[in-house]
Simulated assay, not measured.
Amino acid sequence: MRLRDVQAIVTGGASGLGEATVRHIVENGGKAAIFDINDEKADRLMNELGKEQVLYMKTDVTNGGQVEDNTTKVADTFGNLNVLVNCAGVATPGKVISRKGPVDLSHFKKVIQVNLVGTFNAVRIAAANMKENEPNKDGERGVIVNTSSIAAFEGQIGQAAYSASKGGIASMTLPIAREFASFGVRVMAIAPGLFETPMFDTLPEAAKKSLGEMTPFPNRLGNPAEYAKLVESILTNPMLNGELIRLDGAIRMQPK
């Protein structure tokens, strides 16, 4: 699939990895719809890139009806939907047992709900839409790229909820890809390492530099544009299916 033929939904598309993906798709001739809840950032991005190629629909990814309605609107507006990139997520840390006692169960539920259930919600709705597309010469009707994390494999202390959510995304990649193979929709996952996203915005530059130096090579934080380039590689290579790709500069996280 060529980027100029892409008509995508990008969840969490107003900032970070999602924003970089929207930019990359649009700058290469494709169209992208932003599913996010940050009106200010999404509107600014839409106005910058052009309303003919970018849509913004305020969307809570955990809301089944909202995702379904907005997905239908995107397909109707673009005339087609052939790509979903799931970047929406939260990374609220919290030890299972702190000085105050066991963590409130609502903390765990929220992270799982947004990261894992929200991803699955967008997948099920988008795939049902893609299933009706005309196949290309390879029989492909669509591509789905979900965002896991290296925390799925080397979660640090305080990341139990986040690691569980991202591990779920990693684990469901293959069974969903196998199911969707019958109608020509590929499913992949990316596990980023330490990337310079809004999650690091509150940190001082010295702290960000220190985190970046944990990555063997390149010895820095990842650039969201590098995530977007991997999305492009996945979209354009039809043999990439049912797999998770680490994008981490060879980092392996320590316990804390």
Score class of each variant (00 low, 15 high):
Ala207Val: 12
Ser165Val: 13
Asp76Met: 12
Ala189Asp: 00
Leu240His: 09
Ser171Glu: 02
Gly184Pro: 12
Ile125Cys: 04
Gly249Glu: 02
Asn219Gln: 09
Glu52Gly: 01
Phe180Asp: 00
Arg4Tyr: 14
Ile169Leu: 00
Leu174Lys: 02
Ser210Asn: 11
Met46His: 12
Ile176Arg: 04
Phe153Asp: 08
Gly13Ser: 10
Leu244Tyr: 10
Thr59Cys: 06
Thr236Leu: 00
Phe183Asn: 01
Phe180Ser: 05
Glu179Met: 01
Val61Arg: 06
Thr147Arg: 02
Thr215Met: 06
Asn63Cys: 00
Ala14Phe: 08
Val83Lys: 03
Met214Cys: 07
Ser106Ala: 15
Asn80Trp: 09
Val6Tyr: 00
Asn86Val: 13
Lys51His: 10
Ala32Asn: 11
Leu194His: 05
Val61Ile: 09
Ala32Thr: 14
Ala160Gln: 03
Val54Ile: 07
Ile169Asn: 01
Gln156Thr: 10
Gln7Ala: 02
Thr202His: 10
Gly139Ile: 08
Gly101Lys: 08
Ile34Phe: 10
Glu19Pro: 05
Cys87Trp: 13
Tyr162Thr: 00
Arg2Thr: 02
Thr71Leu: 05
Thr71Met: 08
Leu84Tyr: 13
Lys137Pro: 05
Thr202Leu: 09
Thr92Ala: 04
Pro218Asp: 08
Leu105Gly: 12
Ile25Asn: 03
Ala228Phe: 11
Pro102Asp: 04
Pro175Ala: 03
Pro175Phe: 07
Asp69His: 14
Met1Asn: 01
Met214Gln: 11
Arg124Ser: 06
Ala191Leu: 04
Asn28Leu: 08
Leu247Ala: 06
Gly16Gln: 00
Glu40Asn: 01
Glu140Thr: 10
Thr11Ser: 07
Leu247Pro: 00
Asn63Met: 01
Phe180Arg: 05
Lys51Val: 12
Phe78Trp: 02
Phe183Asp: 04
Leu105Thr: 15
Ile112Trp: 13
Met172Leu: 14
Val117Ile: 14
Val103Ser: 07
Ala177Met: 11
Leu55Ala: 01
Lys256Ile: 11
Ile37Asn: 00
Val145Cys: 00
Glu226Leu: 07
Leu221Tyr: 03
Asn28Thr: 06
Phe35Asn: 03
Arg220Gly: 03
Leu230Gln: 09
Arg178Gly: 04
Asn82Phe: 12
Leu194Phe: 15
Gly222Asn: 04
Pro216Gly: 00
Glu205Met: 09
Asp43Ile: 15
Leu45Thr: 05
Asp138Cys: 09
Ala8Val: 09
Lys41Thr: 14
Val96Pro: 08
Arg99Phe: 14
Asp76Arg: 13
Ile150Glu: 07
Asp248Gly: 06
Asn70Cys: 00
Gly18Val: 14
Ile150Met: 09
Ile9Thr: 01
Phe180Thr: 12
Gly193Asp: 01
Ser233Phe: 10
Phe120Glu: 01
Glu132Trp: 11
Ser171Asp: 04
Glu232His: 06
Pro175Thr: 13
Ala32Phe: 12
Leu203His: 03
Ala32His: 08
Leu84Asn: 03
Ser149Ala: 10
Ser171Phe: 13
Leu105Gln: 12
Lys41Asp: 07
Leu49Trp: 06
Lys137Leu: 12
Ser163Ala: 09
Arg178Ala: 02
Lys209Phe: 02
Arg124Gly: 07
Gly18Ile: 14
Lys58Tyr: 07
Gly168Cys: 02
Pro255Val: 15
Leu194Lys: 06
Thr197Phe: 14
Ala161Lys: 07
